[in-house]
Nucleic acid binder design. Structure first.
Lengths: 252, 252
DNA sequence: AGCTTTATAATAGTCCGACAAATAGCGTGG
DNA sequence: CCACGCTATTTGTCGGACTATTATAAAGCT
């Protein structure tokens, strides 16, 4: 539990908690988190707009805009008379950056993490192979810079983690495939949590640079197959580390 | 009193086309199509809410809800004073079912089709491999039924095409990975367009059943590698057909 | 009884008009 | 030339009235 998310129902409700700038945004965030965390299960019917907006102390319009956001991401469906209900999980846009962020707001389930890794294992090696064939010099230079920064700052620092993400992002971008690139947020989420788990357990700390450099070298050399295999190795090592950390620090 | 909105206003407003039920939905759709089709380019600033809603003959609230939908899908960004502007392409949720549908509303570019195929080539073989290991009997039966229906109706009919999509959906579902499954809409879109192109050029008609049955048999037998290879073959044949059709009927 | 049609009530959807908050860009003063 | 505050523009929020849709219950018909 990180955030106090309960908007006081009754009493002097303060909704100042999560900060997302605009009201409709923060309401969408709060409701989104409540949904993906299971507090509101698929099929559940939300309070009608009038009651809900009153409880949240916002205007009905702001509440409605929040609902539109959630509906656009497939989390809810609204119909007159029936009300607004949480959609089936299969309709959720699990790869949407915001939805993913909401997932990680409350610690994600181990199963979900596992599935994200599987996706990563499918997508990233293929992306690395394409990148080896298509990367331009600027992208290559950016990858190198990212790895140098990552090596220098180490994953214990925010700067180092940002460099790691930047490396993976650039690889995905170098594959030169727009739909594929939209998966970077999902990949990034998996990467971030690997790091979090690894950092929780210092003893597991393994130097992540060798695999990263191997991927880079293969991409630089334009060897697609080699890049694919190197990335496969990188991801599976990360998965191992995550599993090991989870075994020692069971979820929640 | 003031409900007549079907009146084609003489000015620059045009608002009587496709009907998408609710107003905010149809406005979002119209704007979404205008954006993905390039009519409004990234960086362009939309009219302010008052003018825009007047031109469209809808209330400002309805227009705003439409904008919230587009913003949720990463197509636009709103800020006070600056207005609402079309976001960079890299921020678009290209894999969102609705965004994808808008893309295909106006005929998609060949390059985009190509990228979607690449994604399919990455995702579907991996999914088939996982499905071979994890499918349950009900899923297997559904795949068989889909292929039987597809064989019976042929791809020339809507029923046959639906069966084709159902087969691919079921394979993806049998991989038992929720994030992966959300890609089914993208895959489905690629599948649909293959069929459209193939149907335009009857002479290219190749019987698609053999590859499909090979995938099915491998999944039924639980042979992951074999399923992967069979699916690779299936997708690359579909890609060939699409390319051939495009060569003979150049885009527009 | 069983089915169809109609009425009812509940809810999301739409509209309006006003006011609040944020902020890009300009102008003023140092 | 730069810093700083002013202002105009635009989105954001509000509340309240009215409309459209539709699930459900009631009534009517066969």
């Amino acid at each position: 539990m990180s955030k106090a998310k309960e908007a006081g129902v009754g009493g002097d409700g303060e909704r100042e908690e999560g900060f997302s700038g605009r009201i409709h945004g923060s309401i969408a965030r709060a409701l989104g988190i409540a949904i993906v965390s299971g507090k509101h299960q698929p099929g559940d019917v939300l309070n009608n707009e009038i009651d809900a907006s009153e409880q949240l102390q916002v205007s009905r319009s702001a509440y409605r805009e929040a609902i539109r956001i959630l509906a656009a991401k497939g989390l809810v469906e609204s119909r007159p008379k029936t009300g607004t209900r949480v959609s089936a999980r299969s309709r959720w846009s699990l790869l949407d950056p915001e939805v993913l962020a909401w997932f990680f707001e409350s610690e994600p389930s181990e199963a979900f993490l596992q599935e994200l890794y599987e996706l990563r294992m499918i997508v990233e090696p293929a992306a690395a192979a394409l990148a080896a064939e298509r990367r331009d010099d600027a992208q290559l230079e950016r990858m190198r810079a990212a790895l140098v920064a990552m090596q220098h700052h180490t994953l214990a620092t925010e700067a180092g983690q940002a460099a790691d993400r930047d490396f993976h992002d650039t690889v995905l971008g170098a594959a030169n495939n727009a739909p594929l690139f939209t998966l970077s947020s999902s990949i990034g989420a998996a990467v971030r949590w690997t790091t979090i788990f690894k950092q929780r357990d210092r003893e597991l700390a393994r130097d992540p640079m060798p695999e990263h450099w191997k991927v880079f070298d293969a991409i630089a050399a334009g060897r697609a197959d080699q890049a694919r295999q190197a990335m496969e190795k990188l991801v599976s090592l990360a998965l191992e580390d995550t599993h090991a950390a989870l075994d020692r620090h069971p979820t929640r």
